[in-house]
């Protein structure tokens, strides 16, 4: 590149140019080259941070669809857990936050203290599917049985109608919003048993359950199509998006903003929560769009 710039400088001027002039030309042309990408990225950059439940697939795909719909915005999406949604919003390092749980009072306090207002927007419904290995003959568990299994009260499949065999219960790790949500929705807020195994993510749980005939775990709806697993019905309620309100282990997902979002962030949010195309993306990723 250096060389090219040099030649360009040389051919556009008289051959008797002294060395100093040449040097300046080289510098100028370098500057132009460096400035070009800067000019090209003048489009608006929307920063969205928070939950990996939303940030792993849903929001990136929504962003793609949003851009395809003719909006000239670029996105920076970081998914590191619901807690980071609030810390980043507060620090001003993101415009929209994603969270798979509602905010805590403590978190809202911090915004109040900084003279800001935390605003919640419902993004979609999520169902937490309880999954077992395909080879497992059990098809339905009651909420009480699920509580027993994940708190360590029930340790053998024969206690819930399966063949004898020690249960391997796989859970998310403590940083995940799903960990806490499942505890609240399915375990009566009791602590996980010390015999449960904490996995890094949905995929890993699906993988372990899919290869262990005595495994049980829970994953987001998007991951229920993994190999070798099947979903259990809970208290007779199938994992069916149309009946999400009846299924005991379901929850809402949220976007957060500081104040009512305006400008590009507001436009994107309005589109993501109401447009039909966005609803299709939500469905494709495995969540359930809000009913209009």
């Amino acid at each position: 590149m250096m060389k090219g710039a040099h030649q360009w400088g040389a051919t556009n001027h008289q051959p008797q140019l002294n060395n100093k002039m040449k040097k300046r030309n080289v510098l100028l042309s370098l500057l132009v080259i460096l400035a070009l990408p800067g000019l090209a990225s003048a489009q608006y950059k929307l920063m969205i941070k928070g939950s990996d439940t939303l940030g792993a697939k849903l929001v990136p795909q929504l962003a793609e669809a949003y851009k395809e719909a003719g909006n000239d915005v670029s996105f920076e999406i970081t998914a590191e857990g619901s807690s980071t949604c609030f810390t980043n919003l507060l620090a001003g390092t993101s415009e929209l936050g994603m969270s798979s749980r509602g905010h805590k009072d403590k978190e809202a306090d911090k915004f109040t203290a900084a003279g800001k207002e935390l605003v919640q927007h419902v993004a979609a419904w999520d169902m937490i599917a309880v999954i077992v290995n395909e080879a497992c003959p059990v098809d339905d568990l009651s909420l009480e049985q699920i509580e027993g299994i994940f708190t360590g009260d029930i340790t053998d499949w024969s206690e819930v109608g399966g063949p004898a065999g020690e249960i391997s219960a796989y859970t998310r790790n403590t940083s995940s919003g799903t960990y806490k949500t499942f505890q609240e929705l399915a375990m009566n807020k009791r602590d996980y048993g010390s015999n449960t195994q904490k996995m890094a993510g949905n995929e890993q749980i699906a993988q372990e359950v899919g290869t262990n005939p005595n495994g049980i775990g829970y994953v987001g709806l998007a991951y229920t199509k993994a190999e070798g697993i099947k979903c259990l019905s809970v208290d007779g309620n199938e994992v069916d998006p149309a009946k999400v309100a009846d299924y005991p282990v379901s929850r809402q997902l949220y976007y957060y903003s500081v104040g009512q979002p305006e400008g590009e962030a507001g436009k994107f949010l309005a589109w993501a929560t109401s447009a039909a195309a966005a609803g299709k993306v939500v469905e494709r990723v495995g969540f359930i769009p809000l009913k209009k």
């Binding site: 003959p137 053998d156 024969s158 206690e159 004898a164 005939p213």
Partner: peptide
């Protein structure tokens, strides 16, 4: 409880094992 179910399943253990193998 585990003991009870083991006893309950004792007479059809082989068949259950076959079913389990079949599914696996």
């Amino acid at each position: 409880n585990i003991g009870y179910f083991a006893e309950l399943n004792a007479t059809s253990k082989a068949e259950q094992q076959q079913l389990f193998s079949y599914r696996a």
